[in-house]
Amino acid sequence: MRYGSRGLKTGDLQTNSQYVVGCEHWRDMVLSVEEGVLIPRPETELIVDLVGDLVEGNGELREGLWADMGTGSGALAIGIARILGPCGRVIATDLSPVAVAVASYNVQRYNLQDKIEIKLGSWFEPLKNVEGQFVGLVSNPPYIPSHHIIGLQAEVAKHEPRLALDGGANGMNDLLHLCHGAASMLKPGGFFAFETNGEKQCKFLVDHMQKESKSSFSGVDIVSDFAGNKRFVTGFRAKSHNPTNPNEWTVKIN
């Protein structure tokens, strides 16, 4: 409860100030945002750190092709493009035309149009022609269970795009889809990092990956965010795949 300077009872107006002023600070960048695009969250900054640590000692990853699926404002794509080597490239996709426009604008602001390609479309669809060529996949997909949306902070529930938040009944629809596709998109030894809603989703994903596609991934791990919430699932595409298990290659690409 605040009190106005005239001493009368007042209330705070909650809003996404980032939409009002049209931008958000994220890492060392300033990104343009507008209604229809998810405001990048501080937690997601950590994905760039994870990638940064990784590419430092790995030339193949540093100079390879990366994908940021569901890029929104382009935050992850730009963050990663800035730490890749001169030959490193990023393809960013989003289903929302608004997001594609905003991300393209941000990419231009950072003069990275030669490094980042933005494509309109759902998840792996726009990436079909480069299947199996990626050294890294990152994504902050919608992961909030549908029935939770109404209970969120008003400025999130009412003003941020549902498309970027709603992950279906248990919030896992898009995450599972990404996991299924990851094996075929990545080169052997390629890295992936996905943001999730918390411990439950992380554990589910890890279990799922170990059960469903035993040998396609290695080093699958859960990483906590700065607040200690289990937030990210990371891992690598296994270097040599096991031919006795052909199922691992049957990946549904919707």
Binding site: Q18, V156, L165, N197, F226, A227
Partner: peptide, 11 residues
């Protein structure tokens, strides 16, 4: 919960 659940929280 953090992440997508909230916006404009002090860090």
């Amino acid at each position: 919960k953090g992440g997508q659940n909230v916006n404009k929280v002090e860090t």
